[in-house]
Amino acid sequence: MGKNKLGEFEELVLLAIGGLDNEAYTVSIQQLLEAHTNRSVSMGALYTSLERLTKKGFLKSSMSKPTAERGGKSKRIYRVTYAGESALQEARMIRDSLWKKFNWSPAWS
């Protein structure tokens, strides 16, 4: 734990990137997150998360070929590293174990 801890938003970002496979770049990540969370996601927050995740070694990025839709500019494609995947797994394990212990109110049964 400690260094490899994932924040909630970071977790969502990692999941989104994993879901987008080879098409994961800033704009598509932002759009996917917005669509799934029903909240507006600011680019400032996204940039800081992406940078932090890259520093932690959970993400790798590479530049794509320039495309017409971005006005001839290339985009940075993100991919989740193995370390990132294991951080996700770890986070999920922690969650799952806590989920199992949760005492639900009768309304949910």
Binding site: V27, Q30, Q31, M43, Y47, R70, G71, K73, R76
Partner: peptide, 16 residues
């Protein structure tokens, strides 16, 4: 270092 990217990102998002 992300300056150009950020500009391109925001432009694209704006169009969407």
């Amino acid at each position: 270092k992300f300056k150009e990217e950020a500009e391109a990102d925001l432009d694209e998002l704006f169009q969407i």
